Simulated assay, not measured.
Amino acid sequence: MNYQIITQSEQLDSVCQQARKAECVMLDTEFVRTRTFYPQLGLIQLYDGVQLCLIDPSVIEDMSSFIALLQDTAVLKVLHACGEDLEVFNNSFNCLPNPMVDTQIMAAFLGHGLSTGFAALVDSYLGIELDKSESRTDWLARPLSNKQLEYAAADVFYLLPLYEKLLEATQQSGWWLAAQQESELLVNKRIKDADPELAYLDIKGAWQLKPKELAILKPLATWRYKEAIRRDLALNFIFKEHDLFTVAKLGLQSKQSMESEGLDSRSVERHSARIISIVKSARMLPSESYPNKIERLMDMPRYKQKFKVLKDEVKKVSQSSGLATEFLASKKQLNQFISWVWKKDRDPAQIPEVMQGWRLALLGERLNKLL
């Protein structure tokens, strides 16, 4: 496994020009995400079947040739379990690999679990046991050891023969087009822009709060989200989620009351003045401006009964198709479908995932008749 380390723009230009002559390239990234809001890119692995390159984006000033490769629609980009990789590309280069296919998704169409790891598939299809001991390494540290570099290189070196075997199998089984559709769906889901004004809906337990308390939680969650982006810090390093919930539920308006409720002392010291201001403003709102109480699907009449009916249908299709139930329709996807029917009156502008692409004929139409 011979690889070259790319540290200069001129090297990168040459490598990417050559890679764009290939039908497909293998891609992977190594990144660190411990305290930051955005993943911090440490290394990019690229393999076109001839040249295996480890690209160091921390020292290359001009990454435009790599961005051009990502956007070259004549070259298929192959990745494995690429949800976070897509986020890395989007945040680092403001673009995504196009077109792209995920080998984890390809494997799911062949009866593997949706979250089957790369090492497990390489062992299963290639009979090679990979060393994964460097998976938790600090990819921002320099210099990287030979063992770390070899670990990174292996992720794309063995991805090519794995992809070739999965491609043959998905084509023979008739699932290749569906695998491409599902990979595209993954891209679309991963790059949706979150609305800071709706951040309060993601706070655990928010459904328990009354509209008056939600009126406090909503601006607090929006402030925390924007502050996390501004400072590139993970949300809970700005202000813990449970502490935010406590402030909203109790309407805390003093530093002392926050401390007596056991809120994180450092966060209170830093942000109490801002939080008090937000709480006071929220408490002055007229009741007609309060957010609606959050209505959970599971609390609606007949939900459990209907969910079971849909789940049983998914199991039937799973048995006939050989696809895992969670891959066919996860709990989240079934809830999205129920919400579409019950709350959105089957709005054609908000079609749920089970009613799109390969799922529609296989499962969606059957579910639609049942609800």
Rank of each mutant, 00 (worst) to 15 (best):
G111Y: 07
Q11N: 13
Q51L: 11
D202F: 14
H80M: 05
S318I: 05
V59W: 02
V309W: 10
L86W: 09
D312P: 06
L310S: 00
A178V: 04
L54M: 05
T116M: 10
F239I: 05
E10I: 15
V247M: 03
V314Q: 02
K192P: 12
K308Q: 02
K315M: 07
T137P: 05
K332G: 15
N94L: 14
L41D: 01
D193T: 15
T34A: 06
Q208L: 14
V354P: 01
E84L: 13
Q356H: 04
W139K: 00
L43M: 02
V50H: 15
N2E: 15
I216K: 00
V15N: 12
Q208A: 14
Q319W: 13
I275A: 11
D155K: 03
I278M: 05
S145C: 00
L12Q: 07
E150Y: 14
Q104R: 11
N91P: 11
D155S: 10
A74H: 10
L54P: 04
K315R: 11
E134I: 13
L220R: 12
F239Y: 04
S339P: 12
T170F: 08
L185P: 09
S281D: 13
L371W: 05
A19Y: 00
E184M: 09
V75M: 00
D56N: 05
G127T: 02
E134F: 13
I216C: 00
K332L: 15
D195W: 02
L126C: 01
A108W: 05
I128S: 03
Y125S: 00
N236V: 05
W176H: 14
Q45T: 01
Q71M: 03
W175Q: 11
